[in-house]
């Protein structure tokens, strides 16, 4: 009776909300958090296919575990960059980080 489409729809909604946050928010920390939302949506898809896909297997969960590790690395390096940036420019607003222009 379990179906996969509700899980896919939830992941799509979560991904869209994260993308909207990345595109519109001005604080770098919130942009990073929105990226985490998008990564979580991808994880939901991986785990849902591991359980309810056409070929259920454990591989999807292992991939989700790897993406969890990558997300942790990303947050650590991103926040270190943010603190370094704040020390130099005293801002965490993406609009004020405009040293490189085109």
């Amino acid at each position: 009776m379990v179906q996969i489409t509700p899980y896919l729809a939830l992941a799509a909604i979560l991904f869209s909300l994260g993308l909207y946050g990345v595109l519109t928010k001005r604080n770098i920390i919130i942009v990073l958090v929105s990226v985490e939302l998008m990564l979580n949506a991808a994880n939901i898809n991986l785990v849902a296919f591991a359980r309810l896909g056409l070929n259920p297997s454990i591989n999807g969960q292992v991939f989700a575990l790897f993406s969890l590790v990558i997300a942790a690395c990303e947050v650590a390096v991103g926040l270190a960059l943010l603190i370094s940036l704040y020390r130099h420019r005293a801002t965490s607003d993406v609009k004020e980080i405009n040293l490189l222009k085109w």
Partner: peptide, 26 residues
Amino acid sequence: IFFLLNAEFIGIAQVLIYAGAITILM
């Protein structure tokens, strides 16, 4: 949601890493 999909290990890892570590780091 992960627990609902019978993925207990990923669910626990999600609570530890995301809800615990990443939120506090933020």
